[in-house]
C-alpha cells in the first residue's frame, strides 16, 4: 500500500514539475500536423480515386490523436481525462452513426 502510494505520489510530482515537452518538440509535432494537412489538401488537387475518403479519414484521425496526445497532453495526464474525451467521441460516433444509418445515409457512397 505504502509503496504504491509513494510511487503514485512520485508520479504525480513528476507530472507537475518536469515532464513537459520542450518547445522544440512542440514545433516538431506542429510540423507533422502541417505535413498531414498538406497531404489532405493535396487530395483535392490530385485524383486518388476510391481511396479518397478512407485516406482522408485516416489522416483526420491521425491529426486528431496527435493534437489530443501532445497539445492537449493527454499522453501524460491521468487516463481518466482521456476516458472522458474518448468516451464522448465514442458515444457521439455510435449514436449519430446509428442515426445516419436509419436514414440509409451510407447508401449514397459507393464502397
Amino acid at each position: 500500500m505504502t509503496e504504491t502510494a509513494t510511487t503514485v505520489e512520485a508520479e504525480v510530482e513528476r507530472h507537475d514539475e518536469h515532464d513537459h515537452p520542450s518547445d522544440r518538440s512542440y514545433v516538431g509535432v506542429a510540423a507533422v500536423l502541417g505535413l498531414i494537412t498538406a497531404a489532405e489538401v493535396l487530395t483535392y488537387f490530385f485524383d486518388v480515386g476510391p481511396f479518397l475518403i478512407p485516406a482522408l479519414m485516416v489522416m483526420m484521425t491521425a491529426k486528431f490523436f496527435i493534437v489530443a496526445a501532445y497539445f492537449m497532453h493527454l499522453k501524460q495526464d491521468i487516463p481518466l481525462f482521456s476516458g472522458f474525451f474518448v468516451g464522448g467521441i465514442a458515444l457521439a460516433s455510435i449514436v449519430y452513426i446509428t442515426m445516419l444509418t436509419t436514414f440509409e445515409f451510407w447508401d449514397s457512397f459507393d464502397f
Partner: peptide, 11 residues
Amino acid sequence: FLGSECLLFGG
C-alpha cells in the same frame, strides 16, 4: 465539459 461538447458538435 469537453466530453459533453463532443455530443454537441457530433449532432
